[in-house]
Amino acid sequence: MVELTQTWYLVLAALIFAIGATGLVIRRNPLVMFMCVELMLNAVNLTFVSFGNMLDDVGGQVFVFFVLVVAAAEVAVGLALVVAITRRRQGATADDLSLMRG
């Protein structure tokens, strides 16, 4: 039996992160894009905790705490944006929000 090391956690986190990044690019629905961002954040949280364990430092866990807070703020503002946009035009996707194009 292979021994379970911290590297396993990191590999899992990398996998989730890559899936999230790919999903972020592929999906057009802004809500789902936000979910993909949450996936990536969770992957990062996992690495933080793993590294914190490896280095025997509480800082990793504290950072996860901050990431949680930032994620909450991001979701609040992001969902408000989605609501504001969808109210104007039903069925708008992220591709429609290109007013800032050069």
Binding site: V11, A21, V25, I26
Partner: peptide
Amino acid sequence: AAVVVGISLLGMSL
């Protein structure tokens, strides 16, 4: 492109 980038991201990390 997204799949390519995602797989290379994973590959590089691994």
